[in-house]
């Protein structure tokens, strides 16, 4: 059983969804990211999604695009991100999932990356532009061999065939993209979300986390009622952008995570079956 599996099991025992914050590695530099990771953990993150900056992030909205630009301008490299994870993973005590585009992995060599990721203590890898059909060729076997989870996405457009495919290829959890679109905060949840997530959960053995567009405690609460995990990204990335090198930022980040994760804390009367 992987560390990610354990987190979802213990959350299930507590009768709550896992809180999964996303930040971009190297935004504004890797030194700051180290501090930010601690703040996320202190605020109550159950798993952390750590973004690998890419020059051409076609699945991201403006907030995450700008974060990638800042990280790349600071010279952030995949090897340095892996070193950062190696230094902090055990101290943090929570799983880290790399959220990335495929080309940085491809450039490094999939097998080499798999070895290095495992050696650094990376728990899972999620490639936004790598559907399971392509993942099966190289990435999935390489990660399996190293014991690193491979997380794939489902979307509102996914057909029944695709759900089966993603289910067969994902370990750790499955990530449901809450809307057809790019990352970024949205005022309202999509109207079909509750129905779609309920239906999907019945068809998956893995836990299902939901993300894209979630940014408020109210949204976290609503999604936490129906999903096994809730991902919040752009809202935190925006905070990092606004505060820049403000010494208060780590404390603000921790507070924001605590506030966002609060609705997921167990309240016996709301416990799920």
């Amino acid at each position: 059983m992987s560390a990610i599996d354990e987190v979802f099991q213990s959350c299930a025992r507590e009768g709550r969804a896992a809180f999964i914050p996303f930040i971009m590695a190297g935004d504004p530099d890797l030194g700051a990211t180290a501090t930010h990771l601690e703040a996320l953990a202190a605020g109550g993150a159950d798993i952390i999604e750590l973004g690998v900056p890419f020059s051409d992030p076609i699945a991201d909205g403006p907030v995450n695009q700008r974060a990638a630009v800042r990280a790349l301008a600071a010279g952030t490299k995949l090897s340095a991100i892996l070193q950062l994870v190696a230094r902090h993973r055990d101290k943090l005590g929570i799983p880290i999932v790399l959220f990335t585009y495929f080309n940085p992995i491809h450039a490094r060599g999939v097998e080499r990356f798999a070895e290095q990721a495992a050696a650094s203590g990376v728990d899972g890898v999620l490639c936004v532009d790598l559907p399971p059909e392509e993942g099966e060729r190289e990435l999935i076997p390489a990660m399996r061999e190293q014991g690193v989870d491979t997380i794939f996405l489902l979307a509102p457009t996914s057909t029944r065939d695709r759900v089966n495919k993603v289910a067969a290829c994902s370990s750790g959890f499955v990530y449901y993209v809450s809307r057809t679109g790019v990352t970024g905060e949205r005022a309202a949840l999509p109207p079909d979300l509750v129905r779609d997530v309920k239906k999907l959960r019945k068809r998956l053995d893995q836990p299902l986390a939901v993300g894209f567009g979630l940014s408020t405690p109210e949204q976290v609460e609503a999604v936490g009622e129906i999903a096994d995990g809730v991902v919040v990204g752009s809202a935190l990335v925006r905070l990092i952008e606004e505060k820049g090198s403000d010494p208060e930022l780590p404390a603000l980040l921790e507070d924001r995570v605590r506030e966002l994760a609060a609705p997921l804390r167990p309240r016996p009367e709301r416990r799920r079956a």
Partner: peptide, 22 residues
Amino acid sequence: PEGYFGPYGGRFVPETLMAPLA
């Protein structure tokens, strides 16, 4: 049928586009 010319080509897109591409 997978969209490959030898080792080149394929479909490297976000999940949202996979069903529409099909």
